[in-house]
Design a protein around this nucleic acid. Structure first.
Length: 351
DNA sequence: CTATGTGTTGAG
DNA sequence: TCAACACATAGG
Protein backbone atom coordinates (compact mmCIF):
# COMPACT_ATOMS: atom_id res chain seq x y z
CA UNK A 1 0.00 0.00 0.00
CA UNK A 2 1.25 3.38 -0.82
CA UNK A 3 2.36 5.10 2.27
CA UNK A 4 3.42 7.99 0.19
CA UNK A 5 1.00 10.43 1.59
CA UNK A 6 3.53 11.93 3.82
CA UNK A 7 5.30 14.01 1.27
CA UNK A 8 2.39 16.37 0.96
CA UNK A 9 3.82 18.74 3.45
CA UNK A 10 6.95 19.02 1.43
CA UNK A 11 5.59 19.43 -2.03
CA UNK A 12 4.34 22.93 -2.23
CA UNK A 13 6.41 24.91 0.18
CA UNK A 14 4.77 27.41 2.43
CA UNK A 15 1.83 28.53 0.39
CA UNK A 16 -1.12 26.25 0.88
CA UNK A 17 -1.06 22.55 0.68
CA UNK A 18 -2.57 20.27 -1.84
CA UNK A 19 -6.30 20.65 -1.51
CA UNK A 20 -7.27 17.06 -1.18
CA UNK A 21 -10.91 17.18 -1.93
CA UNK A 22 -12.80 20.09 -3.22
CA UNK A 23 -14.85 20.84 -0.16
CA UNK A 24 -16.07 23.60 -2.34
CA UNK A 25 -18.40 25.81 -0.42
CA UNK A 26 -17.33 26.28 3.10
CA UNK A 27 -20.13 28.29 4.59
CA UNK A 28 -18.98 28.48 8.13
CA UNK A 29 -15.32 27.92 8.14
CA UNK A 30 -13.28 30.64 6.78
CA UNK A 31 -10.51 29.25 4.71
CA UNK A 32 -7.34 30.45 6.27
CA UNK A 33 -5.43 28.30 3.89
CA UNK A 34 -3.43 31.28 2.92
CA UNK A 35 -0.94 31.32 5.68
CA UNK A 36 -1.05 30.20 9.26
CA UNK A 37 0.27 27.01 7.87
CA UNK A 38 3.07 26.43 10.25
CA UNK A 39 3.61 22.77 9.78
CA UNK A 40 3.05 21.77 13.31
CA UNK A 41 4.60 21.89 16.66
CA UNK A 42 8.22 22.26 15.93
CA UNK A 43 9.17 25.75 15.04
CA UNK A 44 9.39 25.35 11.32
CA UNK A 45 10.04 28.80 10.07
CA UNK A 46 9.30 27.82 6.60
CA UNK A 47 10.89 30.30 4.24
CA UNK A 48 14.33 29.26 5.33
CA UNK A 49 13.27 25.68 5.36
CA UNK A 50 13.24 25.56 1.63
CA UNK A 51 15.69 22.75 1.76
CA UNK A 52 12.79 20.45 2.46
CA UNK A 53 15.31 17.74 2.38
CA UNK A 54 14.57 16.35 5.77
CA UNK A 55 11.29 14.64 5.14
CA UNK A 56 9.60 16.43 7.95
CA UNK A 57 7.72 13.73 9.67
CA UNK A 58 5.18 16.35 10.46
CA UNK A 59 1.72 15.34 9.50
CA UNK A 60 -0.39 17.74 7.54
CA UNK A 61 -2.86 19.41 9.82
CA UNK A 62 -6.45 19.46 8.78
CA UNK A 63 -8.32 22.57 7.84
CA UNK A 64 -11.40 21.13 9.49
CA UNK A 65 -12.41 21.32 13.06
CA UNK A 66 -12.23 18.08 14.95
CA UNK A 67 -10.14 16.40 12.31
CA UNK A 68 -6.65 15.11 12.92
CA UNK A 69 -4.21 13.46 10.57
CA UNK A 70 -3.24 9.84 10.94
CA UNK A 71 0.22 8.48 10.27
CA UNK A 72 -1.06 6.42 7.39
CA UNK A 73 -2.48 9.37 5.53
CA UNK A 74 -6.02 8.90 6.68
CA UNK A 75 -7.96 11.22 8.92
CA UNK A 76 -9.30 10.85 12.40
CA UNK A 77 -12.26 12.66 13.86
CA UNK A 78 -12.63 13.55 17.48
CA UNK A 79 -14.66 15.72 19.73
CA UNK A 80 -14.10 16.73 23.29
CA UNK A 81 -16.49 16.59 26.14
CA UNK A 82 -15.84 17.03 29.80
CA UNK A 83 -12.09 17.15 29.44
CA UNK A 84 -12.13 13.92 27.54
CA UNK A 85 -11.65 13.08 23.94
CA UNK A 86 -14.28 11.05 22.21
CA UNK A 87 -12.88 9.29 19.21
CA UNK A 88 -15.19 9.34 16.21
CA UNK A 89 -13.28 7.04 13.96
CA UNK A 90 -10.92 7.23 11.03
CA UNK A 91 -11.74 8.12 7.47
CA UNK A 92 -10.13 8.12 4.09
CA UNK A 93 -11.28 11.57 3.17
CA UNK A 94 -10.64 14.58 5.26
CA UNK A 95 -14.10 15.78 4.49
CA UNK A 96 -15.69 12.61 5.73
CA UNK A 97 -14.00 13.07 9.04
CA UNK A 98 -15.21 16.65 9.11
CA UNK A 99 -18.76 15.49 8.54
CA UNK A 100 -18.46 12.98 11.30
CA UNK A 101 -17.36 15.71 13.60
CA UNK A 102 -20.28 17.87 12.54
CA UNK A 103 -22.76 15.17 13.32
CA UNK A 104 -21.24 14.49 16.69
CA UNK A 105 -21.14 18.18 17.43
CA UNK A 106 -24.82 18.50 16.71
CA UNK A 107 -25.65 15.60 18.93
CA UNK A 108 -23.34 16.64 21.73
CA UNK A 109 -23.82 20.36 21.65
CA UNK A 110 -27.11 21.00 19.99
CA UNK A 111 -28.30 22.88 17.00
CA UNK A 112 -26.07 25.84 17.47
CA UNK A 113 -22.85 23.90 17.63
CA UNK A 114 -19.99 25.16 15.55
CA UNK A 115 -19.52 22.85 12.61
CA UNK A 116 -17.60 22.50 9.40
CA UNK A 117 -20.45 22.26 6.92
CA UNK A 118 -23.65 21.36 8.67
CA UNK A 119 -25.59 24.59 8.28
CA UNK A 120 -25.72 23.84 4.58
CA UNK A 121 -29.07 22.13 4.75
CA UNK A 122 -30.39 24.93 6.91
CA UNK A 123 -34.12 24.50 6.61
CA UNK A 124 -34.47 21.48 4.43
CA UNK A 125 -35.16 18.09 5.84
CA UNK A 126 -32.95 19.11 8.65
CA UNK A 127 -35.85 18.51 10.95
CA UNK A 128 -35.84 14.82 10.40
CA UNK A 129 -32.17 14.48 11.01
CA UNK A 130 -32.37 16.44 14.20
CA UNK A 131 -35.16 14.24 15.42
CA UNK A 132 -33.15 11.23 14.49
CA UNK A 133 -30.04 12.49 16.21
CA UNK A 134 -31.80 13.16 19.44
CA UNK A 135 -33.55 9.86 19.41
CA UNK A 136 -30.23 8.11 19.80
CA UNK A 137 -27.81 8.27 22.64
CA UNK A 138 -24.47 9.92 22.16
CA UNK A 139 -22.83 6.55 22.39
CA UNK A 140 -25.02 5.22 19.62
CA UNK A 141 -24.22 8.11 17.37
CA UNK A 142 -20.53 7.75 18.04
CA UNK A 143 -20.78 4.09 17.29
CA UNK A 144 -22.46 4.76 13.97
CA UNK A 145 -19.80 7.27 13.07
CA UNK A 146 -17.00 4.93 13.89
CA UNK A 147 -18.60 2.17 11.88
CA UNK A 148 -19.49 4.54 9.07
CA UNK A 149 -23.10 3.50 9.27
CA UNK A 150 -24.62 6.81 10.19
CA UNK A 151 -25.94 7.58 6.74
CA UNK A 152 -27.63 4.25 6.45
CA UNK A 153 -29.20 4.47 9.86
CA UNK A 154 -30.44 7.95 9.16
CA UNK A 155 -31.95 6.82 5.91
CA UNK A 156 -33.61 4.01 7.74
CA UNK A 157 -35.03 6.50 10.16
CA UNK A 158 -36.33 8.70 7.39
CA UNK A 159 -38.52 5.92 6.12
CA UNK A 160 -40.28 5.65 9.41
CA UNK A 161 -40.63 9.29 9.96
CA UNK A 162 -43.56 10.05 7.72
CA UNK A 163 -45.84 7.55 9.32
CA UNK A 164 -48.16 9.86 11.13
CA UNK A 165 -51.89 9.98 10.82
CA UNK A 166 -53.97 13.01 10.16
CA UNK A 167 -54.23 14.00 13.76
CA UNK A 168 -50.56 13.58 14.24
CA UNK A 169 -50.69 10.37 16.19
CA UNK A 170 -48.01 7.89 15.53
CA UNK A 171 -49.11 5.27 13.16
CA UNK A 172 -48.25 1.77 14.20
CA UNK A 173 -48.48 -1.06 11.79
CA UNK A 174 -49.54 -4.50 12.82
CA UNK A 175 -46.01 -5.70 12.91
CA UNK A 176 -45.41 -3.16 15.57
CA UNK A 177 -42.16 -2.52 13.92
CA UNK A 178 -41.66 1.10 14.49
CA UNK A 179 -42.67 3.79 16.83
CA UNK A 180 -40.68 6.23 14.85
CA UNK A 181 -37.56 7.40 16.60
CA UNK A 182 -38.01 5.54 19.83
CA UNK A 183 -34.54 6.00 21.07
CA UNK A 184 -33.13 5.00 24.39
CA UNK A 185 -31.97 8.44 25.23
CA UNK A 186 -35.54 9.56 25.38
CA UNK A 187 -35.02 11.59 28.50
CA UNK A 188 -34.42 14.64 26.37
CA UNK A 189 -38.17 14.84 25.91
CA UNK A 190 -38.46 17.52 28.50
CA UNK A 191 -39.87 20.77 27.34
CA UNK A 192 -40.55 24.09 28.91
CA UNK A 193 -43.63 26.18 28.54
CA UNK A 194 -42.98 29.40 26.71
CA UNK A 195 -46.34 31.08 26.56
CA UNK A 196 -49.96 30.70 25.60
CA UNK A 197 -52.35 32.87 23.75
CA UNK A 198 -56.08 32.84 23.37
CA UNK A 199 -56.50 33.31 19.68
CA UNK A 200 -58.50 36.26 18.52
CA UNK A 201 -61.09 36.19 15.77
CA UNK A 202 -58.54 37.69 13.41
CA UNK A 203 -56.00 35.06 14.33
CA UNK A 204 -58.31 32.41 12.98
CA UNK A 205 -59.84 34.53 10.30
CA UNK A 206 -58.98 35.46 6.78
CA UNK A 207 -55.84 37.31 7.64
CA UNK A 208 -53.93 34.06 7.76
CA UNK A 209 -51.71 35.12 10.53
CA UNK A 210 -51.25 34.82 14.24
CA UNK A 211 -50.13 37.80 16.18
CA UNK A 212 -47.63 36.89 18.84
CA UNK A 213 -47.75 39.19 21.82
CA UNK A 214 -44.72 41.38 21.59
CA UNK A 215 -43.27 40.53 24.94
CA UNK A 216 -43.41 36.84 24.24
CA UNK A 217 -42.12 37.21 20.74
CA UNK A 218 -39.10 39.22 21.73
CA UNK A 219 -38.33 37.00 24.64
CA UNK A 220 -38.69 33.66 22.93
CA UNK A 221 -38.23 34.27 19.25
CA UNK A 222 -35.62 36.95 18.89
CA UNK A 223 -35.57 38.41 15.44
CA UNK A 224 -32.74 40.55 14.28
CA UNK A 225 -34.26 43.57 12.68
CA UNK A 226 -32.78 44.19 9.32
CA UNK A 227 -31.06 40.90 9.37
CA UNK A 228 -34.20 38.91 8.92
CA UNK A 229 -36.39 41.47 7.33
CA UNK A 230 -38.09 38.69 5.49
CA UNK A 231 -38.55 36.77 8.67
CA UNK A 232 -37.49 33.23 9.21
CA UNK A 233 -39.00 29.80 9.16
CA UNK A 234 -39.71 28.17 12.47
CA UNK A 235 -40.59 24.56 12.93
CA UNK A 236 -42.99 23.45 15.59
CA UNK A 237 -43.85 19.92 16.48
CA UNK A 238 -47.35 19.20 17.61
CA UNK A 239 -48.55 16.66 20.12
CA UNK A 240 -48.37 13.84 17.67
CA UNK A 241 -45.00 14.68 16.28
CA UNK A 242 -46.20 16.38 13.15
CA UNK A 243 -44.01 19.28 12.25
CA UNK A 244 -45.52 22.60 11.34
CA UNK A 245 -43.48 25.21 9.63
CA UNK A 246 -44.47 28.82 9.97
CA UNK A 247 -42.98 31.95 8.64
CA UNK A 248 -42.21 34.24 11.48
CA UNK A 249 -41.63 37.89 10.92
CA UNK A 250 -42.18 41.41 12.10
CA UNK A 251 -44.69 43.64 10.50
CA UNK A 252 -43.60 47.22 10.61
CA UNK A 253 -47.01 48.45 9.61
CA UNK A 254 -48.66 47.09 12.69
CA UNK A 255 -45.57 46.89 14.82
CA UNK A 256 -46.29 43.30 15.60
CA UNK A 257 -44.71 39.90 15.42
CA UNK A 258 -46.62 37.36 13.42
CA UNK A 259 -46.72 33.83 12.19
CA UNK A 260 -47.88 33.97 8.61
CA UNK A 261 -47.24 31.33 5.98
CA UNK A 262 -48.36 27.98 7.27
CA UNK A 263 -50.53 29.32 10.02
CA UNK A 264 -53.83 29.07 8.22
CA UNK A 265 -53.16 25.42 7.56
CA UNK A 266 -52.76 24.84 11.24
CA UNK A 267 -55.96 26.71 12.01
CA UNK A 268 -57.78 24.64 9.48
CA UNK A 269 -56.55 21.26 10.53
CA UNK A 270 -56.98 21.87 14.22
CA UNK A 271 -60.21 23.70 13.54
CA UNK A 272 -59.20 26.51 15.82
CA UNK A 273 -61.93 28.86 16.95
CA UNK A 274 -61.62 32.28 18.46
CA UNK A 275 -60.91 31.92 22.12
CA UNK A 276 -59.06 28.66 21.82
CA UNK A 277 -55.67 28.54 23.42
CA UNK A 278 -52.49 27.94 21.50
CA UNK A 279 -49.51 26.98 23.52
CA UNK A 280 -45.83 27.14 22.69
CA UNK A 281 -43.07 25.11 24.24
CA UNK A 282 -39.41 24.55 23.68
CA UNK A 283 -37.29 21.54 24.35
CA UNK A 284 -35.07 21.96 27.35
CA UNK A 285 -32.50 19.67 25.84
CA UNK A 286 -29.65 20.59 23.58
CA UNK A 287 -31.93 20.66 20.62
CA UNK A 288 -34.02 23.75 20.51
CA UNK A 289 -37.01 21.93 19.17
CA UNK A 290 -40.12 24.02 19.34
CA UNK A 291 -43.53 22.62 20.08
CA UNK A 292 -47.01 23.85 19.50
CA UNK A 293 -50.22 22.66 21.05
CA UNK A 294 -53.71 23.94 21.50
CA UNK A 295 -56.78 23.42 23.61
CA UNK A 296 -60.39 24.50 23.39
CA UNK A 297 -61.56 27.63 25.08
CA UNK A 298 -62.88 26.95 28.55
CA UNK A 299 -62.70 23.21 28.44
CA UNK A 300 -65.97 23.34 26.61
CA UNK A 301 -65.83 20.29 24.51
CA UNK A 302 -63.16 17.74 25.04
CA UNK A 303 -63.42 16.07 21.72
CA UNK A 304 -61.63 17.76 18.95
CA UNK A 305 -64.23 18.74 16.39
CA UNK A 306 -63.77 17.61 12.87
CA UNK A 307 -64.23 20.06 10.06
CA UNK A 308 -66.86 18.40 7.87
CA UNK A 309 -66.57 15.07 6.38
CA UNK A 310 -64.36 15.65 3.50
CA UNK A 311 -62.58 12.44 2.87
CA UNK A 312 -62.39 12.77 -0.83
CA UNK A 313 -60.37 15.43 -2.45
CA UNK A 314 -59.02 16.16 0.93
CA UNK A 315 -55.55 17.47 1.24
CA UNK A 316 -54.21 14.94 3.59
CA UNK A 317 -50.56 15.36 3.99
CA UNK A 318 -48.16 17.35 1.97
CA UNK A 319 -46.11 14.90 0.02
CA UNK A 320 -43.07 16.83 -1.05
CA UNK A 321 -43.28 15.39 -4.53
CA UNK A 322 -39.61 14.71 -4.61
CA UNK A 323 -38.78 12.38 -7.38
CA UNK A 324 -37.05 9.90 -5.19
CA UNK A 325 -35.85 6.56 -6.32
CA UNK A 326 -38.28 3.99 -7.51
CA UNK A 327 -38.09 2.01 -4.34
CA UNK A 328 -39.22 4.99 -2.36
CA UNK A 329 -42.32 5.23 -4.43
CA UNK A 330 -43.87 2.15 -2.95
CA UNK A 331 -43.17 3.41 0.51
CA UNK A 332 -44.92 6.64 -0.31
CA UNK A 333 -47.98 4.79 -1.39
CA UNK A 334 -48.08 2.85 1.82
CA UNK A 335 -47.71 5.96 3.83
CA UNK A 336 -50.59 7.58 2.07
CA UNK A 337 -52.70 4.55 2.54
CA UNK A 338 -51.96 4.53 6.21
CA UNK A 339 -52.77 8.17 6.45
CA UNK A 340 -56.00 7.75 4.63
CA UNK A 341 -57.11 4.97 6.92
CA UNK A 342 -56.29 6.79 10.08
CA UNK A 343 -58.03 9.85 8.78
CA UNK A 344 -61.21 7.94 8.41
CA UNK A 345 -60.78 6.38 11.78
CA UNK A 346 -60.51 9.79 13.22
CA UNK A 347 -63.79 10.82 11.75
CA UNK A 348 -65.43 7.75 13.10
CA UNK A 349 -64.08 8.48 16.54
CA UNK A 350 -65.61 11.87 16.43
CA UNK A 351 -69.07 10.65 15.63
C1' DC B 1 2.64 -6.49 10.68
C1' DT B 2 -0.23 -2.21 10.26
C1' DA B 3 -3.63 1.09 11.56
C1' DT B 4 -6.09 2.73 15.21
C1' DG B 5 -6.94 5.51 18.79
C1' DT B 6 -5.11 6.58 23.52
C1' DG B 7 -1.67 9.07 26.52
C1' DT B 8 -0.09 13.30 26.99
C1' DT B 9 1.28 17.94 26.42
C1' DG B 10 0.98 22.75 25.56
C1' DA B 11 -1.44 26.45 23.40
C1' DG B 12 -5.68 29.16 23.42
C1' DT C 1 -11.40 22.86 24.50
C1' DC C 2 -8.46 21.79 21.04
C1' DA C 3 -4.84 19.77 18.00
C1' DA C 4 0.01 17.94 17.73
C1' DC C 5 2.80 14.38 18.64
C1' DA C 6 4.40 9.77 20.34
C1' DC C 7 3.54 5.23 20.65
C1' DA C 8 1.04 1.12 23.00
C1' DT C 9 -1.79 -2.11 21.33
C1' DA C 10 -6.00 -3.70 18.91
C1' DG C 11 -6.78 -6.32 15.11
C1' DG C 12 -6.01 -8.95 10.84
Amino acid sequence: MDTSCIDESTTSDSVSMTPISVASTLPVTKSPESLCRVGSGTSVIIDAEVGVEAESRKLPSSRFKGVVPQPNGRWGAQIYEKHQRVWLGTFNEEEEAARAYDIAAQRFRGRDAVTNFKPLSESEEDDVETAFLNSRSKAEIVDMLRKHTYSDELEQGRKNYGLLDGSGRRFTNKDGVFSSFGGSDRAAKAREQLFEKAVTPSDVGKLNRLVIPKQHAEKNFPLQSGNNSKGLLLNFEDLGGKVWRFRYSYWNSSQSYVLTKGWSRFVKEKNLKAGDIVSFQRSTGPDNQLYIDWKPRNGSNITQPIPMVRLFGVNIFEVPSNESCSSGKRIREMELLALECSKKQRVIDAL
